[in-house]
Design a binder for these strands. Structure first.
Lengths: 178, 178
DNA sequence: TGCCTTTCCGAACGAGGTGTTCAGAAACGA
DNA sequence: TCGTTTCTGAACACCTCGTTCGGAAAGGCA
């Protein structure tokens, strides 16, 4: 049943926020969800499976594509806003407490997007461009995790501004050289 | 004995490179090190303790301080070079296989250093500066991990160049505004 | 209502990991 | 040679995992 799946997913999210992903055991989950042990394994392969099953619900990972092809990194602000709206779920899945697994998924999706934008803006695919993408993604994910882990209380607008200010000058300079 | 400690540390490094940190068990370690179980617990509290005990040997985490106060982020190139020299140990401790624990230590040390440099270069301590620091550290650690995990084969000089090109324009602009 | 199918329950199991304890062996220094 | 430090490895209680299985509960359908 779909209800059972949801109970298990929500139990894991709640427990991650309390103890951190690594400390949560399957036994914890089934007790919290009030579900039989065999029922758990009928729906999910293991703990990680539950974690990933929550990932689809993170709307900020699937932002609206290129509305305005003129502006670079237009995803930034909406993403930070989505993150704030889904604060609870994001904190559980993407922060330090989440064990880093979901974080890597986010990095990969973002890297693909950033690379697309840079190429669309005139960059040529090359090893140097990949390094630039890595820097941009690193900066963005750094800000994201700082906010998720409560190291900053900045608003989405401020995070967006900091990201653009830090990264856009270097990116523009790199694109002009091509 | 110091020899025993070293045997255990080296066993963990070797095993991380083979299986990844999470998959390594204490039993694995003592078998590889050819050491009694009780001996292990006489020297280390647990697996994580062994991991952290290796951290002091990472020379790139303790770079020579501010030789030339004029140049921003002078640590970058020497760090990438140190990383290459200690490739094996760095791969085990700082890469994805290392479980991310040591990676966070590196982030913290680097963040403190970057913040110091920015303030020495005329930046004023503020929330905005902290966000900038986060971006810079994110970019650097992103490059570092990309190299560690074999996503790029760039040389230390190339990594350094990519880091500076991506980050310095934004940093200079931010410093001028103050 | 009665029947049948799907779903869930929870106890039990074996396998494997953890960290501790302890008596004895080995190495070492004086 | 003697005494101290260090290591050994078996045994321990405890926890977690993922599976199995008989039976209970829920739900559709006639």
């Amino acid at each position: 049943m779909r209800r059972t799946r949801r109970l298990i997913q929500e139990a894991l999210v709640a427990l991650i926020l309390e103890k951190g992903y690594d400390a949560v055991t399957v036994t914890d989950i089934i007790e919290r969800a009030d579900v039989g042990r065999s029922t758990f394994y009928a729906h999910f392969a293991d703990k990680q499976d539950v974690l990933f099953s929550n990932l689809d619900q993170l709307t900020f990972l699937h932002p609206a594509p290129r509305d305005d092809p003129g502006e670079l990194f237009a995803f930034s602000r909406p993403m930070f806003e989505h993150v704030r709206e889904q604060e609870r779920l994001v904190r559980a899945l993407m922060g330090r407490r989440g064990g880093g697994l979901a974080h890597r998924r986010g990095e990969q999706l973002l890297a693909a997007r950033v690379k697309d934008e840079l190429i669309a803006a005139g960059g040529r695919a090359s090893a140097a461009l990949d390094l630039l993408v890595t820097c941009v993604v690193g900066a963005f994910m750094g800000l994201l995790r700082a906010w998720i882990d409560g190291e900053t209380t900045a608003s989405p607008a401020e995070l967006d501004a900091a990201f653009r200010a830090a990264v856009l000058p270097g990116v523009r300079a790199a694109l002009k050289e091509t």
